[in-house]
Design a protein around this nucleic acid. Structure first.
Lengths: 204, 204
DNA sequence: TTGGATACCATACATTTGTATGGTAAGGTG
DNA sequence: CACCTTACCATACAAATGTATGGTATCCAA
């Protein structure tokens, strides 16, 4: 029979992998080779090298070259979900890259957040009629083709707002979903569509 | 007045922080000081040291001593996410474990879905006044202590509903958040609280 | 005008860390 | 047996990386 590599992990290899994963999750950083060595009481770094090599070969670890603490457990990768930075309540400067104000992040399913996305904290109640409340988070997708009726995030004269997009003839309207508010005609104003709202998340 | 430190980040500090965060999220590992230096074109590592020091002082970064690539943006530690099965629109049998009907799943952040959770597809419009619409998904946590005012999933006479929980004196009410609907008095009915709604997710 | 915060530069150094090389030993297999 | 895999040890080295020290300049508030 051909020399066939065992795709399953040996008990020891599993142990090493578990340690790396645990360390990664707990500290947010992978352990160094010597951390691993110390944890298992190995008397040589080479032992760790061997195990890491095996784990990489078996597809359990990713490792960039020559980077300190660069081991990444493949299985532990945030699968099927994305972490989005939350921007919001930005007064001046809008969402310009260098002036982003960081409000943390949320994790959403990849099926919700496809392509390049970011998150936004909803302020105000201009979209209350479709159930978007202050404090909710919306997932915004960049670079999508905007169609009539889409909910969009727009930068109008330096202010970020969420509205429904309506284009009739040559007129562009940003329509609030709130009976008590009036649509904004931005046809002659300076505005910029930041992206399209593709999802909403609320925490109780 | 005492020397008071500015808790807000300067634009440059914000930029450095953003870079670190982005790198951390993208690569799963923080950048080294020299990575940061190169990114911003600084001619000295010391500049990075200064910024990092400021960011730590302002509570934006965590840093273990002498560890390579040890910078961690506070609150951005890689948390896991959970995949929750979606149950819902179940007529008979409610949510009993053995009769659950699988409607797929959603992925949510662990910060949202703590403990034992499942997801439910919202049907009907009994909670429309707090922005819960048909088709939305709610995350339901099992085994939590229910307090007055909590949104709960209840099994009332074989039917699953989402309502606000109100207990006054000896009476237990399940209150719909819809002006046009009446509270249900379940004091004398057979009912069971399935769990507490902790989050909501909507896809546009 | 003194002091603090911000924002850089320059240089040197010690440690951490990944990497390379080579050796020992047990267990299983053709 | 020869050969492979697993599982260790020992040692050395170079690169990556954090750290320390000290300097310059601007802006702003007390």
């Amino acid at each position: 029979m051909m020399t066939e590599m065992n795709k399953d992990l040996s008990p020891q290899q599993q142990a090493v992998f578990n340690y790396i994963s645990a360390h990664y999750e707990e500290h947010g950083t992978a352990p160094s080779y010597r951390d691993i060595q110390a944890h298992f009481g190995f008397k040589a770094v080479g032992t760790v090298q061997d195990h890491v090599k095996a784990l990489i070969q078996k597809g359990k670890l990713e490792k960039p070259d020559k980077k300190a603490r660069g081991l990444i457990p493949v299985g532990k990768k945030l699968e099927g979900s994305k972490r989005l930075s939350i921007y919001g309540e930005v007064a001046a400067g809008g969402l310009r890259q260098t002036e982003q104000i960081d409000l943390g992040s949320i994790v959403v399913s990849e099926t919700l957040a496809q392509g390049e996305c970011f998150a936004l904290r909803v302020v105000g109640n201009s979209m209350i009629d479709i159930g978007m409340y202050e404090g909710d988070h919306v997932v915004v997708q960049r670079g999508t083709r905007i169609k009539n009726g889409d909910i969009v995030v727009a930068l109008v004269e330096g202010e970020t707002t969420v509205k429904r997009f309506e284009k009739k003839g040559g007129e562009v309207l940003l329509v609030p979903e709130n009976k008590r508010m009036q649509p904004i005609n931005v046809t002659k104003k300076s505005f910029e569509i930041q992206g399209k709202v593709v999802a909403l998340q609320r925490k109780f």
